[in-house]
Simulated assay, not measured.
Amino acid sequence: MTKPDAGGTPATLALVRAGIRFIAHQYAHDAGQSGAAGGYGLEAADKLALDPDQVFKTLLADADGTLVVAVVPVSGTLDLKALAAAVGAKKAAMADPTIAERKTGYVLGGISPIGQKTTLRTVLDETAELYDTVFVSGGRRGFDIEISPADLIAVTGATIAAIARTR
């Protein structure tokens, strides 16, 4: 099990407390590379030389007035209709970024599905189960965690559903 240093994030601390194995991956975040065209997740895939299908981004959505967390591959986009169906809502829309930061305790581009300030319902795209490990934000820009999908599901209480669309 990888243990964080004294500057650990809520995500790594939650994993250590739960006894869940993970590998921390740091990279030099480049604000210019993660702009609107590429995104933070694609920057992580590029900098860590990973398949973008194996790197997942954490998004917050408002599903009929309730915040939910969606975790999808950075190679695709979130299907809001599929997310709404997965959580039994009529419709879903992306959450306000300020609310996402306040509820999770993380900054945009560093929102981890693990160790969030407020426990929210989480849905993980079914493609995560195609891999032995997946990569998610470790709680800050330039820091990803490699974890098994089963452990990610266990620590977040996520459900699995087809919520991603390929670009």
Rank of each mutant, 00 (worst) to 15 (best):
A63K: 10
H25C: 02
V72A: 07
T104C: 12
G76Y: 06
G7Y: 13
A86G: 07
T9D: 08
K90E: 15
H25A: 06
V55Q: 04
A92E: 04
A82T: 07
I99L: 15
I23M: 06
E101Y: 10
L80F: 01
R21S: 09
L13F: 11
R165L: 09
I23S: 01
S34G: 15
E43N: 09
H25G: 04
G157C: 05
L120F: 00
T118L: 12
F143C: 11
G65Y: 09
I99W: 12
G35P: 05
H29P: 05
L60H: 01
P52L: 02
D46Y: 09
F135V: 02
T118D: 14
V71R: 05
A128R: 02
G157P: 05
L78G: 08
E43L: 10
I160S: 11
L59E: 04
R141E: 09
M94C: 01
G39Q: 03
D151F: 01
L48R: 06
G7V: 11
A61F: 04
G41I: 07
A158G: 03
L83F: 00
I160R: 14
I111A: 04
A45W: 07
E126P: 00
A128W: 04
Q116K: 13
G142K: 11
A154D: 06
Y106Q: 05
I153Q: 11
T127H: 01
T159Q: 13
D51H: 06
A45Q: 00
G110P: 03
K103M: 14
T66S: 12
V72E: 05
A95S: 07
R165P: 01
D46R: 15
V16T: 14
P4L: 09
I114H: 09
P97Q: 12
F143Y: 15
A84Y: 09
G88P: 03
T77F: 13
V16H: 13
V71I: 06
G7H: 15
G138R: 02
H25W: 10
R165Q: 11
E43R: 06
D144N: 13
A100V: 09
L67T: 06
R165K: 15
L67D: 04
V136M: 05
T118E: 15
A28R: 14
A128H: 06
G35Y: 08
A28Y: 10
P73N: 08
A93M: 11
L13G: 09
L120M: 11
R102M: 15
D144H: 08
A93F: 10
G110F: 02
I160N: 11
R121N: 09
P149Q: 08
G65W: 05
S75D: 02
G8E: 04
S148G: 03
G7M: 14
